[in-house]
Design a protein around this nucleic acid. Sequence first.
DNA 1: TCAATAGGTAATTTCAAAAATATATGATGA
DNA 2: TCATCATATATTTTTGAAATTACCTATTGA
Lengths: 222, 222
Amino acid sequence: MAHNIDEGTTGERAYRRIRNDILQGRLAPAEKLKLERLKEDYGVSVSTLREVLSRLSSEKLVVAEGQRGFEVAPVSAEELKDIASLRLLLEVHAIAQSFQSGDMEWEARVVAAHHKLAAMEEKKKAEGSPDIETWKRYDWEFHQALISACGSRELMETHGAVFDKYLRYQMLALTDRGEIAAREHRQLMELALKRDAAKAGDVLKAHITGGLAHALAAGRIV
Amino acid sequence: MAHNIDEGTTGERAYRRIRNDILQGRLAPAEKLKLERLKEDYGVSVSTLREVLSRLSSEKLVVAEGQRGFEVAPVSAEELKDIASLRLLLEVHAIAQSFQSGDMEWEARVVAAHHKLAAMEEKKKAEGSPDIETWKRYDWEFHQALISACGSRELMETHGAVFDKYLRYQMLALTDRGEIAAREHRQLMELALKRDAAKAGDVLKAHITGGLAHALAAGRIV
DNA sequence: TCAATAGGTAATTTCAAAAATATATGATGA
DNA sequence: TCATCATATATTTTTGAAATTACCTATTGA
């Protein structure tokens, strides 16, 4: 998910920074993106910005209307539900494929990713919330590991894009199901090793719809 | 799919033209996209081109590696299979949803879209291949109409993106299952009116895997 | 003969300013 | 007072050129 901070061209770096700022809510939904201001904030020229914003508008994280410039994509409960259900569709299917053809390397990836995630969740329970950003990354990496043997690059990339949008809502809602999510993560890992795709699908459904309900209940998303 | 030819900014027009040229194979897979040449061909400046190509690289129709410029995304039998199976997953699901909640307006859209497509297929059978581009557009519009009552904007957009990539392969393979595809289209329309999502799923599976096999058999895709 | 390197050329990337477009402000007349 | 139009300002869009980076070729030394 996160690449080295100063890897690639200036444009790529700006792309990653701005994308992250949208995902983390530092650039608020529906906020107008004035080029002059962004130029200051990110230290790049307008042409480069434009390149970055075009790319983000392809990913629907930014909307670009006519010749009225760019703004951060708005959020809505409607879209959140939509995204959650699409994520569920893709991830359930990918898990089934993955459980079928996963080898030992895959099992190792799943166990490793879960280990990191579980450690983070444990730490969070103890000390409060240390580093939301890396915690969310571990969450991403765990779910990615689960489906990493599905055998379809297209499926994984599409899932990744949807997951990121889902993550944005989670960050905006500032919601956290703590131990419940942690238990579900453990269940998913165990079911992966048992290759029980059907049960894993059920758990994932609960995981996602639970997270969705929790985010909606927080009331920060209209 | 196709918007008015001179709608929007210069950049948007160039975007549509280049995108179309990739989808139609006029810009060949893995072809290097030299900015100087494109500048001539499309009559826009390098910065504008760069904006367009960035956007297309988000859609994976163009690849942009490091500071070595852009090239048209390559094709492979592997990716084609991948795309076909993702399209099937999304479209079967969307059809089920759509059949469940489609109203009379939806039925009318389906019938209308099928009418245009069938007329084109009839004409093609009679006169050879008149206008591949509009024929493919009618195909797109028909499948889009079928799922247009699925209730999920995300699902429709994702499906649209995948469908376009699938279409690119069809154009490259120059394959045509003619009457078989036409019969399947008719069946899909009839099953839509009968709200028989299960059978429609089967027909769609045959439709897509048949098209896939036909394209691969043409041997133009390595 | 081969590898390594230096120099030159071609391409990409980035920038800052000009052109085009939209938004805000104020004046005029009903 | 209100709507309409003209002017001015702000913002976006597009351009062309400077800075950077990659690529090719030839020369040197082993």
